[in-house]
């Protein structure tokens, strides 16, 4: 098990390094020097060169990359945004928690709804709940989250007035108001994954209930509750793994959802940075999100291994 974890962690690190290099090069691919953008088109050539030298932009690409990545890894320092001059790390630390919170809320909602729904669907296979759940799941996977968000704003905020139409209400303004501002975005974000996880739970449990070892349990007179508990332990293994992965995916879609609800989370950092051609910021945000995503996938793989006694012992 330890060997497996070590291998996967190493692999993830390699992937991250490669990704960081790619995003670094990508941001440098664009024509037009950042110095020129900073100084404006009227700047004189020496001014531009001078600024470039100060910003370290005249060094070879590999050296620039090395400096940047060592700053990130060793000091957690993503450098400064050359648009605003402010340190990027603090900007990210300001916006990241908001996105994290939305994702976490969506995730919790997802688990709380999807898993029981999937279980009930499986236990009462072909029953009314099963059929309704299937239809709702197909809708949940098909309706775009950002449109759902828009519609929810129209209904929930404009017409019913139950929720704020957007924006982020910080905790300092009260827990209730804070949560209220997050309900609609988290819901819009989580629906897709709720649908997927509920179907996955259902099919996994149905499959397990068909197995010979469940027949053995029934034949030996174990109570229905105990049998379901047994089956769940087997059935939830892949579900846990998928749930871990979905956290990673949710981070990506949060970017879009935040735009719908005008929430100043990571999406704000990324998109305005793209718009302003603030490439250091873009690099940083993409890398951060990639780290989260790689981490989520890694967690999923490790969890799957760890929960599965049959493969746990092997390398």
């Amino acid at each position: 098990m330890v060997r497996f974890v070590a291998r996967r962690v190493l692999f993830s690190v390699v992937v991250l390094v490669a990704a960081s290099a790619v995003i670094f090069v990508l941001t440098r691919l664009v024509p037009g020097s950042p110095a020129l953008i900073l100084l404006g088109p009227e700047a004189k050539a020496e001014q531009v060169q001078d600024l470039e030298r100060r910003l370290g932009l005249d060094r070879p690409l590999a050296v620039q990359y090395a400096r940047w990545i060592s700053d990130v890894v060793l000091h957690g320092d993503f450098g400064r945004s050359y648009i605003s001059g402010l340190p990027i790390t603090s900007e990210i630390l300001r916006t990241l928690p908001i996105t994290v919170e939305i994702v976490l809320l969506a995730f919790v909602f997802c688990l709380v709804v999807a898993v029981p729904l999937g279980i009930v669907s499986a236990l009462y296979e072909d029953g009314l709940i099963d059929h309704v759940a299937r239809i709702v799941a197909i809708a949940g996977v098909s309706v775009p989250g950002f449109w759902l968000g828009l519609m929810l704003i129209v209904c929930g905020a404009v017409h019913l007035g139950w929720f704020p139409p957007g924006g982020y209400t910080p905790l300092s303004m009260g827990l209730g108001a804070h949560l209220q501002s997050l309900v609609l975005p988290a819901f819009s974000l989580g629906i897709y994954y709720t649908a997927i996880i509920s179907r996955m739970t259902r099919s996994s449990l149905v499959e397990v209930l068909r197995q010979d070892y469940i027949r053995t349990a029934r034949a030996l007179g174990l109570s229905r509750t105990r049998i379901v508990a047994y089956a769940l332990k087997n059935a939830l293994i892949p579900v846990v793994s998928v749930a871990a992965m979905s956290v990673g995916y949710m981070f990506g879609w949060a970017i879009i959802i935040e735009q719908v609800f005008n929430i100043a989370g990571l999406s704000r950092s990324l998109l305005s940075a793209l718009f302003q051609r603030d490439y250091y910021m873009v690099q940083a945000v993409v890398l951060v999100i990639t780290i989260v995503f790689v981490g989520a996938n890694l967690a999923a793989e490790i969890l799957y291994r760890a929960l599965n006694p049959r493969v746990r012992g092997t390398a």
């Binding site: 692999f11 992937v15 995003i23 691919l29 998109l271 873009v282 999100i289 989260v292």
Partner: peptide, 17 residues
Amino acid sequence: ALSSIPLLIWAIAVVGI
């Protein structure tokens, strides 16, 4: 490796850049 990076974000970044 390819499936462990968040391609949606990268798509946004690439097109944005």
